Every structure is written in C-alpha cells, then in structure tokens.
Amino acid sequence: MAEPVIQTKGLTKAYGHGEKRTLALENLDLTIQPGEIFGYLGPNGAGKTTTIRLLLDFIRPDAGSATIFGQDVRTSSVELHKQIGYLPGELNLWKNQRADRIVSYFGNVRGMQDTRYAQELAERLKLDMTKRVRDYSTGNKRKLGIVLALMHKPRLLILDEPTSGLDPLMQQTFNQLMHEVRADGRTVFLSSHVLSEVQAICDRVAILRDGRLRAVESIEKLTHVDFRWVTINFRDAIPAGMGTELEKLDGTSHFSQNGKSVRLQLTGDFDPVIRAIGGGYVTDLRVQEPTLEEIFLAFYGNGSAAAMQQEA
C-alpha cells in the first residue's frame, strides 16, 4: 500500500489552562491515502479547524504526532508547505490590492514562471481579477482563495469550508475542479459542515464532534444504511385503522399522515408494510435513501439536530 498522504496518531490539542482548559481535539488517529477526496465533517466548533492548523504547524499539539508525505509536520513544515495548497476558513488578503497582482505575488513567492492556470481558474469561477479585494463580495473573495490554493497544482489541498459563500452554480464548478484534482492523482482534505457538498464529491468521510472522531467510512458505505423513507399515496382516503397498523409495525418509525399520503421510516423488510396496506388502492409508492444529514444525526442522536440546524 502507498504511503499515506496524511497520518495522525493520538493528536490532541487543548486551549486555556486550569478550569478554563477546553479540549479541542482528543486522540485523533486518521489516515488519508493518495488520490482521494477526504471529507472532514462536523458542526462548527467540532475541532476541524484545529486539526488543519496542527497539520500546517500553525499551532503545536499537546500530545500525539502528524505526518504529511511521511514527513513530520513540525520539523519539515517549510518543505511541506511548498507541496500544499491551503484555503483557510477566513481569508485575509490585502484589501487595497487587485486580485491579479495578488496572484502574481503568490506566483513569484512559489517560483512560478507561468500563471496561466490561475487565469483559467478565474475564468471558470467567473472571477474578475482586475478588481481590488475590498470591492469583492464574500463569494468572490472565496473564489480568489480557491484560485490561490489551486494555482500551483499542489500534491495536497487542505481546504477549510471551501464553498462558504459560493452560489450553487459555482459550487458545481468547484466540485468539477476537485474531481480533476483527484484524476491527477492528487489528494484533497476538505473540512465542511455542508453535508451535501461532502456527499457529492468525497470518497471517504470522517465524522468529528466535540473534538472526537466518531466514524471514518466511505461515502458509499456510510450512505448504505439500514433505513429508508417510504411515502405511500392512496387513491382514496386512507382506510380506517391502516395508519395505526403501519405505525405499530416493527421497523417503522417517524410516522406521519397527510390527507391521502403516509410517510414513515422503515428499517428491515418491506413485506410487513405491503401486507398492512393490502386493503387500500395505492397510486404511488416512493422509497428514498436517507441523506447524509440524516445519517449524521443518526450517529449523534436527536440532541444533535438542533445544534446542526443552528450551526449550519
């Protein structure tokens, strides 16, 4: 097996001292392989940005270690940064400078002789680089950050909430860019609380909450869970007692009834449901796989639903 691009062992970080000490990350063991888009998923405050800052040696851990391309992130940070494209969650650039001059400056720092790829990225993202940063909207500032992170075609991209502020069309363009990076054999480490984004482009996802790693799974496996949503539409009024019978079946939950329609969550076989609706004329029966958000809440329980709605 190829050497991991990112590997952490027991990575731990706390802020503050004494009674005010807060554990931001605890015993993180994570392995990311070459050529994958890895989603780092969790609500704000889960520890995602702390992890990224530790990987980039912006802050130091209290315990544990991390390597990128087999090199210690602390002792080899200068060399590693040359191979990384980084987009922070909050991008602070020179407000009075034009974007094209900022791109030129970054190109010179990186020893790039040709910035045509940066121009191509700007065109695809519909970013006018003749404007000053202060005149940009939040979304356009994000686009500039994406250009700066991708322009030197780094071996590893570390992106913190990359699509924040982008409209849906630009999110699709971003997704295509990430697929192209993967096709080149390069690696993406992407933190997000936008569940649909992670579901659309990632190969694997880690679920983080309160500084602790809850799960690491492939998107395919994570979304292949043992429940689905079933919606049944009847031609006539729902037969008397059928709703109660469906609600009481083993494996059904979250039952709701609206006019001639019934919706429920089903775990297990369909046969009991089919038998229960045998007396009604069904015009439509729809089965939906759960969204990644619903799977996420299944990991954390109902207590997380309100938190996710507030933090997303």
Rank of each mutant, 00 (worst) to 15 (best):
V5M: 05
V5C: 06
I6D: 12
T8A: 07
L11R: 06
T12K: 02
A14T: 04
E19D: 11
N27G: 10
D29H: 09
D29P: 08
P34K: 05
P34V: 00
P34Q: 05
E36L: 05
P43H: 03
N44F: 07
K48M: 03
K48F: 03
T49P: 02
L54A: 00
L55M: 01
L56Y: 00
A63P: 06
F69V: 03
D72H: 03
S77Y: 02
V78S: 14
L80D: 08
L80F: 02
Q83K: 13
L87Y: 02
L87S: 08
P88N: 13
N96Y: 15
N108S: 14
V109A: 00
Q113R: 04
Y117W: 15
A118P: 10
E120P: 04
A122G: 13
A122Q: 08
R124W: 00
D128G: 12
S137A: 08
N140M: 14
R142F: 04
G145A: 11
L148V: 13
H152L: 11
H152C: 04
K153G: 04
L156H: 05
P162M: 13
M170W: 01
M178F: 03
D184G: 03
R186W: 14
T187K: 11
V188T: 09
L195V: 10
R204L: 00
R204K: 07
R204T: 04
V205Q: 09
A206E: 09
L208G: 07
R209G: 00
L222I: 06
T223V: 05
V225H: 10
D226C: 08
F227P: 12
T231N: 12
I232E: 09
T244N: 15
H254V: 05
L264D: 07
Q265Y: 03
Q265D: 13
T267K: 06
A276L: 01
Y281V: 13
D284P: 05
L285V: 00
R286Y: 01
Q288Y: 02
Q288V: 05
E289I: 08
T291I: 01
E293Y: 14
F296D: 01
L297E: 00
L297K: 09
F299Y: 14
A307P: 12
A307H: 09
Q309D: 13
E311S: 07
